[in-house]
Simulated scan of single mutants.
Amino acid sequence: MKPVDEYFINQKEPYQSIMLYVRGLILNTLPEAEEKFSYKIPFYNCHNKPMVYLNILKGKDYVDVCFVQGILLEKKFPILRNDNKRKQVRSIQLKNLEDLDHENFIALLHEASHVLSHSKKAWFI
Rank of each mutant, 00 (worst) to 15 (best):
S38T: 15
S17D: 09
Y39P: 03
D61I: 00
E34H: 04
E74A: 07
Y15C: 08
F105V: 14
V4S: 08
P50S: 13
Q69W: 01
L100C: 10
L94F: 14
L27E: 05
L94Y: 09
E111N: 04
K2W: 11
L80W: 10
A122S: 12
P42M: 12
P50K: 09
P78N: 05
I41P: 00
H110W: 10
R86S: 14
L97H: 08
Q88L: 09
K2C: 12
Y21G: 04
E35W: 01
Y21F: 15
V22A: 07
Y44A: 08
V63A: 07
S17H: 03
F37S: 01
P3T: 10
Q16L: 10
K58Q: 14
I56M: 07
Y44N: 06
N28Q: 11
N48Y: 12
T29E: 09
A107S: 12
W123F: 13
C66K: 07
L100T: 04
Q88Y: 10
T29A: 13
D61R: 00
F43G: 03
Y21P: 04
Y44L: 04
C46D: 03
Y39K: 04
M1S: 13
S119A: 13
N84H: 11
L25I: 15
H114E: 13
D99F: 10
E98A: 09
A122V: 01
E98Q: 09
L97I: 08
A122N: 03
F77T: 06
N84S: 05
I125W: 02
S119E: 15
V22W: 08
I125Q: 00
P31G: 03
